[in-house]
Design a protein around this nucleic acid. Structure first.
Lengths: 200, 200
DNA sequence: AATCAAATGTTTCCCCTGTCTACATAGGGC
DNA sequence: GCCCTATGTAGACAGGGGAAACATTTGATT
């Protein structure tokens, strides 16, 4: 028994708390350099405890990446959803929303796209990424049907959009979008160029 | 004296050898996860020796990133240089060359764009990145002068190109460009979309 | 209710890394 | 020939990831 201190021996919900603690760190940090031991420390638990809930550090990272893609999907849907606006407006809103997401959660965003690099990637992460991509695909499809977007292969358009937004996000996080280099408002400016390539 | 083994006490050119060893590791690895001790080991030198040539690990990483940008600039110039071809051809060649570079040196490419994230970035790295960007700017300027490219702000076009190519490269490295998602030839397809947005 | 098995935390190890400090060796200017 | 400095080595330390052994609870079975 542990009547002396308030905390019981068994935490009760450590899995969730570990994830939330790690997410909080990712929100602060520019890179996902946090250590598993520090997560355990902040969760008020010994450094061995996390291994009862995650095979290794990578398993925790995978879960975080999956959550990140779910949040990104929500951000995209939210930016696209009010359909009573021009397609171009919704497109720009979604692109900027994704980039804002990356800027608000730099560590998480970087982590999301780093977790698929090795072959042993968690398929759940891949699926979550696929969901976000699906939202984009459907939007472009609607745009083509309405005649707003050019009638070129959907996957090509989607790849271009995905790459453009991801590229802008990464360059911004990496501090490459300095004003001397790309002007005061590079993001809408660049998205406009792409939009011109999509529009019919 | 060290007459017994062939290696003299002083290496003679350790700085260069450390850089080259690290570059070799970067060429193999998907991420730049190599350790400084391992570099020293492969260079056949004690684990403390590198500190006589680099303030810390970050200093070596910065130098590698700088070399990477110089190589990238060379790749771009090479792809753009024969001017007796249509602008669109040269544009596509340069984009694909950059992405091929990333694919051949995934670790190095990732490192290059990771080194500017923190504020204490080596200004030399930034300058080297700027040089590559300048090559792109000049090409677009030529294109506009010739009337091949639309007459929109240069920095906007350059940002869009830079982000598109970098985004494609990163997505490819991260294994996000699966065929089921983006079709068989996503890179030229996506670059074509962007090109449509640039062309007049 | 008593008991045993599984789940979850803790402690203690091991080996690795980056970095610092003290020491060894070599080469070049005087 | 001698000393200063550049360069390399050896060892120490803190901190991390991970495994193993041990402790504490919970809960299912009887």
């Amino acid at each position: 028994m542990r009547e002396t201190d308030g905390r019981p021996y068994h935490h009760g919900d450590l899995h969730r708390v570990l994830v939330e603690t790690a997410l909080a760190m990712l929100a602060t940090d520019q890179h996902w350099t946090f250590t598993l031991r520090e997560v355990a420390r902040q969760a008020g638990v010994s450094h061995g405890a996390p291994y009862k809930h995650f095979r290794d550090k990578g398993a925790l990272l995978s879960q975080l990446a999956k959550i990140g893609f779910e949040r990104l999907a929500a951000v995209m849907e939210n930016a696209l959803s009010p359909p009573d606006r021009p397609f171009r407006t919704r497109f720009l809103a979604a692109g900027e929303a994704c980039i804002a997401f990356a800027q608000e959660q730099p560590g998480l965003y970087r982590l999301m796209f780093s977790m698929d690099a090795d072959k042993a990637a968690d398929p759940e992460v891949h699926d979550a990424a696929m969901t976000s991509f699906g939202i984009l695909l459907r939007f472009l499809e609607d745009g083509q049907r309405t005649g707003v977007f050019r009638d070129s292969p959907l996957t090509a358009q989607a790849t271009a959009c995905w790459a453009q937004v991801h590229g802008l996000a990464m360059l911004m996080l990496d501090g490459q979008l300095t004003e001397e280099k790309v002007g005061p408002t590079p993001i809408p400016a660049a998205l406009d160029i792409l939009l011109a390539g999509l529009s019919s």
